[in-house]
Simulated scan of single mutants.
Amino acid sequence: MRTLIVDDERLARNELKRLLEPYTKIEIVGEAANADEALVLIDELQPELLFLDIQMPGKNGFELLSSIEGKSPEVIFTTAYDEYAIKAFEYNALDYLLKPIDVERLKDAIHRIEESQIHPEVSVTANDRAEKILGENDQVFVKDGEKCWFVKLGKIRLFESMGNYVRLHFDDQKPLVLKSLNNLEERLDSNTYFRANRKHIINLHWIEKIEPWFSGGLLVTLQGGDKIEISRRQAIRFKELMSL
């Protein structure tokens, strides 16, 4: 994947190049120290991917993206500041890496690039995104305290109500978001996400085992070991949904 690194700090560019060395599919075709240099190189080199800093002399990273004519490359933001993460999401970024860049987070970002090539998605505006039903290939921005993630919904195996918050279960992470479970249920694709009971929405693709449970309910075990009870009322819907 033809890649351009845009960062005003030479040491940061060199460090990123070093971190990217193990990824043979990432071909670094150039680097730029500011937006003006980057625009020239984008026009000349036609990169497919930008690793883009946000705060730079002159135009910032967002202004650079707004100045690109024609189809924009995919973008992974690299920055020392987490306050721009929500705005980065509006630009449909693949990921948002905080400096100093963590090796595992970079690995996740590269994996997301590979998946985006296998499952290309139609770009949508922020307003469109606010209305559309979210499926397993959509990404969501999650911030909990000082940590933030771009998470592909298909990786989230369980949504758990915690009062006015919802806990998301993905990988070994369990961040809280200020949302109600009912609000999330309205946004999620019902072919993939099922309301098991008052407190839980499960990802059907993560079910490993189903057992009969008390009072006509069901007990499902998700990959990773979570055990969730499907209420008797929801068990009827579940059986209808999962039957031929």
Rank of each mutant, 00 (worst) to 15 (best):
E9P: 00
R10Q: 15
A12K: 03
I26G: 10
E27M: 04
E37F: 00
A38E: 01
V40Q: 14
V40D: 13
E44S: 14
L52H: 06
L52P: 05
I54M: 10
M56L: 08
G61W: 00
K71Y: 04
I76D: 08
A80V: 05
Y81W: 12
E83K: 12
Y84S: 10
F89E: 05
D95L: 04
Y96K: 04
V103D: 12
L106F: 05
K107D: 14
A109N: 09
S116W: 03
Q117L: 10
Q117P: 00
I118A: 13
P120N: 11
E121D: 07
S123D: 10
V124D: 06
T125C: 05
A126C: 03
K132P: 06
I133G: 06
L134G: 06
N137K: 10
K152I: 12
K152F: 00
K155A: 12
R157H: 10
G163A: 11
R167A: 12
L168N: 02
H169W: 09
H169L: 00
D172Y: 06
P175V: 08
P175N: 13
V177P: 02
V177I: 15
L181I: 15
N183E: 14
E186K: 14
L188R: 03
Y193K: 01
F194R: 01
R195Y: 05
K199L: 00
L204C: 10
H205Q: 09
W206K: 13
I207N: 11
E208W: 02
E208R: 13
K209P: 01
G217K: 13
L218Y: 07
V220A: 05
V220C: 05
D226C: 02
E229T: 14
A235T: 07
S243D: 11
